[in-house]
Simulated scan of single mutants.
Amino acid sequence: MPEGDHRQPIAHRCNDRVEDVIQACFEGNPFKTVPGPFKLFYECMRSKPGEEPTAPFFYLELDPPTREVKLE
């Protein structure tokens, strides 16, 4: 890497969704807690950038993602 290159890694756009799935694994019976967060994670991975699901997280205390509306 060049000496002046100080780029930082950027989290994947679905990183918060996978963290929600991991947290669900520790919230009781995983057969009941994991399917909801996993479905949203899967939707996020299949979506195009900017079209991620905006449903609230199940276990993370984060605001749900929002979509920017482009006015023309």
Rank of each mutant, 00 (worst) to 15 (best):
V69K: 13
P64C: 14
R46S: 14
R7S: 01
H12D: 01
K32Y: 04
T66V: 15
A24P: 03
L71S: 11
P65N: 13
D16A: 03
H6K: 12
R46A: 14
R67D: 02
R13Y: 06
D63G: 08
P56H: 15
V34K: 15
I22A: 06
M1C: 05
E72T: 02
H6G: 05
P64S: 12
P9D: 00
G50E: 01
V21G: 10
N29M: 08
T66M: 13
G36N: 01
L60I: 07
F26Q: 06
T33V: 11
E61D: 05
M45Q: 06
R17K: 07
P53K: 09
F26C: 07
E3A: 04
D63F: 11
P2R: 08
P9E: 00
P65D: 11
Q8Y: 00
E52S: 09
Y42G: 01
E51W: 14
E51D: 15
N29V: 05
V21F: 09
I10L: 14
Y59V: 03
L60A: 10
F31D: 05
T66Q: 15
V69E: 13
D16K: 04
G36S: 01
G36Y: 00
E3G: 02
L62V: 08
K48L: 11
T54P: 09
A24V: 04
H6M: 07
M45N: 03
L40V: 07
K48Q: 13
P9Y: 00
D20E: 05
D16L: 01
G50W: 03
P35V: 02
I10G: 10
V18C: 03
K39H: 08
A11T: 08
G50C: 02
L62H: 15
R7F: 00
R17A: 08
E19P: 01
M1R: 04
K32R: 11
K48N: 13
V69H: 12
P37Y: 10
P37H: 08
P9M: 00
N29C: 07
F57E: 09
E61K: 03
P49I: 12
G28Q: 12
A55D: 00
V18F: 05
T33Y: 12
E43G: 10
M1H: 08
Q8M: 00
P64T: 13
F31E: 04
E51P: 14
T66P: 13
P65C: 13
T33G: 14
M45H: 05
C25W: 12
D16M: 02
R7H: 01
E43A: 11
P37Q: 09
Y59C: 04
P53I: 06
P65S: 12
F58T: 03
P9L: 01
Y59S: 04
F41N: 10
E52N: 10
P56Y: 15
H6I: 07
L40H: 10
E68S: 15
V69P: 12
K32E: 10
F26V: 06
C25A: 14
L40P: 02
V21K: 07
T54F: 10
L60T: 06
H6F: 12
E43D: 12
G4I: 14
R46E: 15
C44H: 06
V34H: 13
F31H: 07
D63W: 11
A55E: 02
E27V: 03
C44Q: 05
P30Y: 12
F31N: 08
L62E: 13
F58E: 03
M45L: 06
P64D: 11
A11Q: 09
F26S: 05
V18Y: 04
P53C: 04
T66A: 15
F58L: 05
E52C: 08
F26M: 08
